[in-house]
Every structure is written in C-alpha cells, then in structure tokens.
Design a protein around this nucleic acid. Sequence first.
RNA 1: GCGCCCGUAGCUCAGUUGGAUAGAGUGCUGGCCUCCGAAGCCAGAGGUCACAGGUUCGAAUCCUGUCGGGCGCGCCA
Length: 588
Amino acid sequence: MKPHLQSLLEAALARLVADGLLAPEALPDGPVPLERSRGGEHGDFASPIALGLARSARRKPRELADAIVARLPASPHVRDVQVAGPGFVNFFLDEGAVLSAVSAVLEQGAAYGRTDSGQGARVQVEFVSANPTGPLHVGHGRGAAYGAALASVLDAAGFEVQREYYVNDAGRQMHILATSVWVRYLQQRGEAMPFPANAYRGDYIRDVAAELVRVHGDALRVPAGEVTLDLPPDVDAGGDREIYIDALCERARHVLGAERYAVVHAAALGSQLDDIREDLEQFGVTFDRWFSEASLHTSGAVARAVERLRAGGHMYEREGAQWFRSTAFGDEKDRVVVRDNGEPTYFASDIAYVDDKFARGFERMIYIWGADHHGYVTRVKAACQALGHDPERIEILLVQFATLYRGGEKLQMSTRSGEFVTLRELRREVGDDAARFFYVMRRCEQHLDFDLDLAKSQSAENPVYYVQYAHARICSLFRQAAERGVALAEDARTVDLSPLVEPEARGLARTLGRLPEVVTAASLAREPHQIAFYLREVANDFHAFYNNHVFLADHPGVREARFALARATRQVIANGLALLGVGAPEEM
RNA sequence: GCGCCCGUAGCUCAGUUGGAUAGAGUGCUGGCCUCCGAAGCCAGAGGUCACAGGUUCGAAUCCUGUCGGGCGCGCCA
C-alpha cells in the first residue's frame, strides 16, 4: 500500500513540474516521504512532501499541498485525501484496502512480511566469533541473538545473506588453551605439575584432559621435571605470568614434538568449537560458514596481504617489528602487524580476513563486535582502505554488554576465576525463547539490563509470554471451534471479510498490514528490536478485539470473517517471532 | 587526557529521512469474566526529552559547548 501511495504522489509531482509550478531539480532524490499516521483524524498515511518542497517552490506549504492533492491520480484504495496542519497530505484508505492486508497475509502465509527492498544484494553478517578457548558467556549470547535476528531480517528484506563465524584458531591464546589442557592431562596421569597462573582453569579443561587420557593413555605423558626444567618463575614464585606461560607453551611444543602437540592442540580446539557450535545450535543460531583464521596463514593469505601493504608503501620496520602506517588513514597510532619474534599479530589475520571478504564479492560486510572492541574499528577500516577497498562497504556494529539482574541485584561476572555466567546457564535458567527475545528487545548500542526474574516469570509483565500468549490463544480458538463442531471454510482466502467493521478489527488489520514496512525499516536500520516492538502491538490489537467481540459468533458470515482475521494474526505473529528465533507455541 | 556509545514518565525503554497533541511496558489508582485461555482488556494520574546556545517554516532527532553515566585506549586477545 505504501509504494502505491508513493507512486500516486510521484505522479502528482510530475504533473506539478509539467504545469511549471515546480522546478524539476527540486524533486526529492529518493522515494517520496510517506509515513504511517497514528490513525484517527490524520488518516492512515501522511506525507510531509509539501512542507519539504515549499521553499524551493516558493509557495506556502498548504497552498502547495492543495496543488499536489488536485493533481493526485484517482485510486480505488483511497477514500479521501485531506490537507491538514501546516501542510500534511493525509490519505484515508478505503475500507477494503485496509482489509486487503488480511487477504495478503492469508495469501502469502509464511512468506508474508518478506520484501524485495534488498534487491538480492549480497550481504555478509559475521557475528559471535568468540575465541574457542571456553564456553560462550552471556555477552556472546547477545551478539548471537542480535546477529542471528539481523541476518533473518535482512534475508526477509530481500538481501542474500551469508552468516559467518570467524574462528580464532591460530595464535597465542590457542597455544595457551592447548597447554592448559596438557597440564591437566599430566596432573591426571599423576605428574606433579604446577598449574600456571595464566592458564585457563575452567572445569571444561579437565574434561578435555580426561578425554585425552581415555584415548591416548600415557602416550602424551612427559615427566613433570622435564617439562618445567629451567623455566622462568611463574608469578607466585616472583616471576611474570605472561613470560612463564609463553615459555611453558614453547616447552610443550618442544618436548611433545610437532605431531603429539598437534594432537593436544586439535583436541583442545575441537572440544571448544564443538561445545560452542552445539550451544549456538540449541539456541537456534546457525552459520553458513565457520571461517578458520589458521587457514589464512596456511594459504599464505596473511603473507600476501602484508606484502600488498608493503608494496603500497604502508609498512615500515621499527625495533624489529613490522608496522602498518594506519595513522595515514586516521588511526591514532600505527599498529604492529608482525612482532619482533616473527609472529604475526591477530591484526595481521584481520587484514587478510577483510581482504578475503572483499574478494568474495559481498556488496556489504557487517561485523558484529562486542563494544569492548571499538578501538579496532579504525584500524580495520584503515587496512581496508590501504588494500584499495572501499571502507564504506564494511559496517562494524558494536553490541553493548548485557548486565544480568536477579532479585533486583546486579550479578557479578568474572571471566578470570572461571565463574562467569555462561550462555548455557542462562538458557537453562530462562529458556531459549525468553533469552532470544530479551536479547533483541533493545537497540544493540544500548546497554541491556537483563532481568532474569522477569524473563523467567510466566506472567503478564513478561513481554515474550505476552506475544506468545496471543498466538496460543488463537490456536485455542481453532481447537474450540473444532471441539464444538463449528464448520469453518476450507480455504480462508475465499472468506468474505466485509463483516469486519469493528474499530478493533480495522485497527488489527491495519497493524497486520505493516509487517513488510517494519521488516524493511528494521533491515535498513539494522534494528531487529523493531520487530519485537511491532509484535507487541499486534498482540495488543488482537487481545483488544478478543476482549470486546466473540470469535465464535453465531452468524456464520461474521464468524468466518473473524476466524480469517485470527488466522492472519496468528500467521503474522509466527512470522515475526521466527525472525527473532523465538517459538510460536500452540499452547502454553 | 583522547576516542566511541548513552542521557526521554518513579523504573526499563520506543520514537522512522527533522514533522502534527512525545509513546509503550512496568509500577500506582479505578473498572471489566454466567461467554471462545484474566498469561487478557479499558480508563486515569505520571514529562523542563540532562543543561545552555545555534541551524529553520518546524528539533527528542542535526551542529557547538557544559554536566552526568558506561566502555576502550599494550609488539594482549
């Protein structure tokens, strides 16, 4: 309906130009502005176009609005057009046009809400991408829920979406993880190995170690004395925890040999990746591709990217390290790409990775990062520019942290002690549906207060239950009809909707008609929370009708029309919840 | 100190590209089940859109400054 009205306005503007009342260059670049009005006296849609053009047309807004209205082509869907306020053009839709939304829902079913505004443009959404060094925590959960919902919304808006997880399976943190596992393994075999201060100490490390014991027995065993011989002191012995752990990692590789070390490394990585993948899958979050950072090294992509930067004159050497001159692209300082020990930094991988994304031909690349990574935005865009790519095509969205509350108290989360609240624990406590919904209720750049008690409560004030309840209630209506032996039309699409004359019915139909617009707006703004707010409105409009009118009406025509409306409402709720990854229960 | 994000009802938050009388949930007050799920509906009270300037027909929205809150600023990831 919205595009239809916009085309009417465009036609009117064209005539205005033809009549010499408006200069052609004054026409708006994009689509003619048109918005939903709140209803009532302002009609169904309103356009402020005359207000915007008044200046360049050198006419008063209301006068211009009158001129536009006089030139609007007739439309069967428009009942009336009025000029109001300072110069708004208000459209009043024909009764049938409002109800046509119900027909459209019934016609399109699960596809209702999908639009072609994205025109098939290829978009990549990279999200979560947490280091596989331990279980996902609640912060990752928000990135997962937000990224998955955004990807779904983009898909519904007609983009061709690719969902990707970048796996940091190379580098120092992975070595520390592997070494942590190995130390636990040695302990479990009876070796008197001290546990390093800087190692990963969660219980999951012991589990992986136990698995190594089960599969490999003593094959990976090395006497503790040999392992720790001449190592620098750890922090509790007056040394440095970083220096100690690096030395221990180095030693592990040496005494185990490449082959055996690879076994430990693979077991550590594999276990964590499997765990993360399972966690996300249960959470309803899936990826089209798990992109390995290590593959960028083995394929030579990192070396090639660095060489490109060097050839472009963007690299220099200082104190033995290789630096990228990111300050030339607005960064506050230059960044190390290859350390003095010859090890490339994670930033080196990031450079090769962004280059790879461009090579794959995405029109837009969306990164979803935790807010603590915002310092990396400039350098990645700088690298992108230095490689000759348009930085405007990458979009880095920063997701703020979620703070958990229980009993009104803020929960303390500590990663260091291994006592952090994991995503899995959160899911178990509040359920996947509530977690997914709560995570996307807020704009991503907004801090999120996650009230565990509220998310768990099966009560009116829980927004996810509010929406799901409407869906379950509609399902119950159909069960009631069946139980009472009330016949309903085989095909709801053939039902005459004209008995839907009540204001609540019209309001609900009007709201149902907005889903495609909401999807488009949410996709363009990267704001899946708009879907969540919209669903609340749908549920509210439905409940309002329900409380004032009986669906199982005696009059067959009225009953059929109302059930068609209920069916359409159920579809819209299910479609909307699906975008957010939330279930639509038939009963609860 | 510098950079990014935020500041809207008691609380948690929406507010589209700058548009009409700034909205919702929750909490509070008062109504609504002999009837399809009351996990619901309706009504009321509740506002200096942090503050001060500026831009213009029009600012919660854009610009500048001030105040307040969060986060980040390593050859860490």
